[in-house]
């Protein structure tokens, strides 16, 4: 006689799985990765591979020998962290720094909290900020993008557009004087500018973002509210004094803005769960980013802003509840 199974309902399950979500994210990152290979060449592949292998290795090591729990490498979360970490560093970064970054991302930011789903901060971002503070020289020497079609030229380093503007403005120059040093807007969009591996091409990142929204991996609320906040904030400054403030589009498509808004801030684990919370979270990230960019010491502030708002996530989860059924009856109640 066959032994029947007894369990509570529901007896069917949709086809969602953690792995599916993670590999969806990986797929969404492919365009940005291809652009980086196009502009930064083989170095970009080196950094990505190294970061992925290191992240997965540390995850395996810690799960096997420290936590002594099940090995969940194939859920893809270490892979995502690895790619995101690579996206956040310059392509000329020495290998040993990447490995340190992977250890920080997986060991410190993820596993020490108990593994997938329990971390408060986005692991890749923790690693990026850790590296930025520990190795400021290596982390801010950005290779100039040279299309792969023009052959393998020697790597020349140069500042990012944000750094050019920041230093220029601090030195008292006006925007029109700086314009000559900056790439054209079309270059920003397709990614021909100095910057971290994955952050350069706004178009590729937006493509990935649209894919993820379509597949319901991320919600539109977080990226939209970040970008709108940044746009409005920088727009106000620009309207006040266009000579000494870059225009809002500049802020939207330079630096890690797109990467942060689409891939980093939307990390499920460290972002709020409800629509209201997500909107406030996005607003906070946009605001903090602009405060850091305009008045802070660093030219770029997206990572710090996201990490700060990550810390506010539990609070936002508590404060913003979903709309409960029955809150608005729709008629005067029968008395």
């Amino acid at each position: 006689m066959t032994m029947f199974t007894v369990s509570g309902s529901p007896h069917v399950h949709g086809n969602e799985s953690t792995g599916k979500i993670m590999y969806g994210v990986v797929f969404a990152m492919v365009p940005a990765a291809l652009v980086s290979v196009y502009y930064f060449g083989l170095d970009s592949i080196r950094v990505m591979l190294l970061s992925i292998v290191a992240c997965m290795f540390f995850e395996w090591l810690i799960q096997k020998y420290l936590i002594k729990g099940p090995i969940t490498l194939n859920d893809g979360s270490a892979l995502v962290t690895g790619i995101l970490l690579a996206f956040n560093v310059p392509t000329n970064l020495p290998g040993w720094i990447i490995i340190i970054g992977a250890l920080v991302a997986i060991g410190m930011a993820k596993m020490s909290f108990g593994g997938l789903g329990k971390n408060i901060f986005n692991p890749a971002l923790v690693a990026r900020v850790f590296l930025l503070i520990s190795f400021p020289v290596q982390m801010t020497s950005w290779p100039k993008p040279v299309p792969i079609t023009e052959g393998f030229a020697d790597v020349i380093t140069g500042p990012t557009p944000l750094a050019i503007v920041k230093e220029g403005l601090d030195a008292g120059k006006s925007m029109s004087e700086l314009q000559a040093d900056l790439p054209a807007y079309t270059d920003y969009l397709i990614g021909q500018m100095g910057g971290s591996l994955g952050e350069v091409s706004a178009i590729a990142l937006i493509l990935g973002g649209l894919f993820m929204v379509w597949k319901k991996i991320i919600t539109w609320e977080i990226p939209t509210s970040i970008l709108v906040t940044v746009f409005v904030f920088s727009g106000i400054l620009w309207l006040i004094d266009p000579a000494y403030n870059p225009d809002p589009f500049f802020h939207l498509i330079t630096g890690g803005m797109m990467l942060g808004a689409i891939f980093m801030a939307t990390d499920m684990v460290s972002s709020p769960m409800t629509r209201g919370g997500q909107l406030v979270y996005g607003f906070g990230i946009g605001l903090l980013t602009m405060l850091i960019r305009v008045w802070g010491a660093y030219p770029e502030g997206v990572s710090f802003a996201i990490l700060l708002m990550n810390a506010a996530t539990p609070l936002l989860n508590m404060g913003f509840k979903p709309r409960r059924f029955g809150a608005k009856p729709g008629i005067e109640l029968n008395k």
Binding site: S7, H13, S17, T18, I21, T72, D75, S77, G115, L116, G117, K118, M268, V269, M273, T274
Partner: peptide
């Protein structure tokens, strides 16, 4: 049932 994994707070 499928094997249970950790909650990734996907909401």
């Amino acid at each position: 049932r499928k094997t249970t994994g950790p909650c990734i707070r996907c909401s």
